[in-house]
Design a protein around this nucleic acid. Structure first.
Lengths: 242, 242
DNA sequence: GGGGAGAGATGCCGC
DNA sequence: GCGGCATTTCTCCCC
């Protein structure tokens, strides 16, 4: 069983294949790309996702999404992986000039990742600690699709003023302010009232964004998001002592 | 030379390592995550980027960025890859329970990808075909950092009206309208004039975005971006006949 | 290095 | 499926 056979088998089963190869890549779909010959790692997953990785960088240089159809072709021109995603109208050709290694195996992986510390956790935290937002803020709803759009946190100040809160886990930029502005304006328009406060909550803010917030009468409140949420009491972390 | 030695070597050189292993992963940094035991592909690149891939899906389930420091540890508790990115304050631990294979090699890859069909190409195309925007549009500058921000396309209508064009390669959503709105307002504020037109150009637009555009007096123009730009006359594509 | 915007963004959850 | 938005977004470009 040679390399070609191994690749063929991997493409036709739900195995995962890892190929080290000197190859050239062409892609056509949402954009078009060409990549001249070089040594790369090719990953073909069980769900037929395909990734081409160069020796440097975080992201794949080329890729095809899951459910792509891969065909291994070997003729006088050489070896190729021809990938077609007819539904998305995306196509890729990998010309394999030299195969360094091929590894195929079935990966048993029943678990999915548990992640915490996202923006939802931040708005939950703010909801539990409304004093961080100040001015007598009373939370009403969080992360909900209101009639006015998707609002992170929504409440009032106990003084007949509605309060719309937009929160960002990291430094807020102009986009955060315009988002907040959209919500506030939508509510103003539908309620026909002026007593609506907009509050932007984030650990930091860019100069421009702060200026924009002030121009629009919004409050910026600097709040550090919780380092991590402890979801179980017995949360013994082995990674803790760096 | 066993698996442990091979991994150790790969982590200490500018080789690229591909490891198939049953492992558990913990991450702490911008967020926190835990991933219980399962079979995965681990990629450690020449620049010390590290990726953990499950058998399905496009994106890595866990990762560390380039320039991370990796340490291979083997003791009574088992084998671990301890990754530390002190600068970014990101940390990862991979507990290796069973190693299926290890492949290390030096990847020679001098080329970078050539890609076309991005938004810049779209605005270039519109600049060459101003009639697509209509109303006697005369382009002046494109994709430039003006005093008012980064404007895709900027011009006038031959009738003393400035025209600001925001273009999107795909369906435009609310964000596109708010972006356009920011630029138009900035220019209005600094020039103190009202004769400024805002035009949103995209192949499609969402209902909400169209409503927003109309509310703000902007024009939406449906234009299909060019399938691809031919940058060289002799552009023989071998991928052509899918 | 920070800021701003695109990306072949991807993925998630809502309707 | 579309729509709206977060993402351990990533990457690039410009100041």
């Amino acid at each position: 069983m040679d390399d070609a056979d191994r690749i063929r088998e991997a493409l036709n089963t739900s195995q995962t294949a890892v190929i080290g190869a000197r190859c050239a890549v062409e892609y056509s779909g949402r954009a078009e790309s060409k990549l001249a010959t070089g040594d790369r790692i090719i990953l073909v997953k069980a769900d037929n996702a395909l990734l081409v990785h160069q020796p440097n960088g975080n992201t794949p240089v080329n890729y095809m999404k899951p459910q792509t159809v891969h065909e291994f072709v070997q003729d006088e021109a050489g070896m190729r992986i021809k990938s077609r995603d007819a539904k998305r109208k995306e196509y890729m050709d990998i010309l394999l000039e030299k195969i360094h290694f091929v590894n195929c195996l079935t990966l048993e992986d029943p678990h999915s990742i548990q992640l915490q510390g996202n923006e939802k956790d931040f708005s939950d935290y703010l909801s539990l600690h409304p004093e961080l937002i100040g001015d007598g803020f009373v939370p009403v709803s969080r992360e909900e699709q209101t009639a006015y759009g998707f609002v992170d946190l929504f409440g009032h100040d106990g003084d007949n003023n509605l309060v719309v809160v937009e929160c960002k886990r990291f430094k807020a930029g102009p986009d955060a302010v315009t988002q907040l502005r959209r919500y506030v304006e939508k509510i103003k328009a539908s309620k026909g009232v002026d007593g609506i406060k907009g509050v932007l909550v984030a650990p930091a803010i860019t100069k421009n964004a702060l200026q924009m917030a002030e121009d629009w009468g919004f409050t910026y409140k600097s709040v550090e998001p919780p380092r991590f949420l402890v979801k179980s009491k017995k949360d013994q972390r082995s990674i803790g002592d760096f």
